[in-house]
């Protein structure tokens, strides 16, 4: 049994981040895509908290709080927009949104 080093946290965070990116790119449901983004941000949070602990500098952990706060604000706006879209189209599947090509 080896000890857990910073490298392990980097692998974990990178894996989580990759899962989040793939989730945003391949899922077609907006809510799932939002969750993918949350996963990406949480990967960053793990990385920041870990590096901050290993560096012995608390600034990284403070940053994590700010990220959580801003992510909440972003998701609030995102969910409000999803509600409006649902009223307009009756669907939360991105393949139904093709008024703007591209």
């Amino acid at each position: 049994m080896g000890t857990i080093t910073l490298d392990h946290y980097i692998y974990l965070a990178s894996a989580l981040f990759a899962v989040g990116v793939v989730g945003v790119l391949i899922r077609r449901n907006i809510l799932i895509m939002m969750m993918g983004i949350e996963l990406m941000l949480n990967a960053v949070n793990i990385l920041l908290a870990a590096t901050s602990a290993f560096n012995g500098d608390s600034a990284g952990q403070v940053f994590v709080f700010f990220i959580m706060l801003v992510a909440a604000a972003e998701i609030a706006v995102g969910l409000a927009i999803i509600t409006m879209i649902y009223r307009n189209t009756g669907s939360i599947d991105v393949k139904d949104y093709s008024r703007l090509k591209g």
């Binding site: 907006i30 895509m33 939002m34 983004i37 972003e74 706006v77 995102g78």
Partner: peptide
């Protein structure tokens, strides 16, 4: 909002 949040995460 989706792409903006994703770019911030990156």
């Amino acid at each position: 909002v989706l792409l903006g949040a994703m770019s911030s995460a990156i």
